[in-house]
Write a protein that binds this DNA or RNA. Structure first.
Lengths: 83, 83
DNA sequence: AGATATTTGTTCGTATGTATC
DNA sequence: GGATACATACGAACAAATATC
């Protein structure tokens, strides 16, 4: 169980944890924890879990997201090789 | 057409209807209405229909679910007779 | 064997409403 | 008013197992 601080929003605190897991290698390149997994593990609503994912993607550029599939550790892959 | 109330979420209102059908015998032990059937009959999204099923299963224990097959009225059958 | 339809499981995208701070 | 956080609800897409033809 995570101890929430009062000086930062929960989605930022979760982002810190996930970021640590990524940079430490605990989350190797590949499938990241899903929004649902975040909700379960941290006991937050989906909105909150989503904000974490968006933050990691839009601001930190540590992950990318494939709609309906999930988020992945690493940079957005190039889409070359298609007509 | 169902008249939605404002004091309860739709998935709970649907659950009440289904529960009534089960206890009244309108839905005898056996195959329950599918998520798709729920969507059609009540005009709701699949998420909403699913919440009803999960509620009836996890909280009410009135039904059980066989993945890729459907949900069934009654208690979870024992799995004996297997190696 | 193969194609198709059905059904549950899972995922992300989006929007709304309520409440709190 | 704005940011945070909860719950609800719509939509869409992909996967996998099962059943049917």
């Amino acid at each position: 169980m995570i101890e929430w601080r009062d000086d930062l929003p929960r989605w930022r605190q979760i982002a810190t944890v996930i970021q640590r897991r990524i940079t430490s290698g605990e989350y190797p390149p590949g499938r990241l924890i899903s929004e649902n997994g975040l909700m379960q593990e941290f006991g937050v609503a989906r909105n909150t879990a989503r904000k974490t994912i968006v933050w990691l993607r839009e601001e930190k550029a540590l992950i990318y997201t494939r709609p309906n599939l999930g988020s992945f550790v690493g940079p957005e892959p190039e889409d070359d090789g298609e007509e």
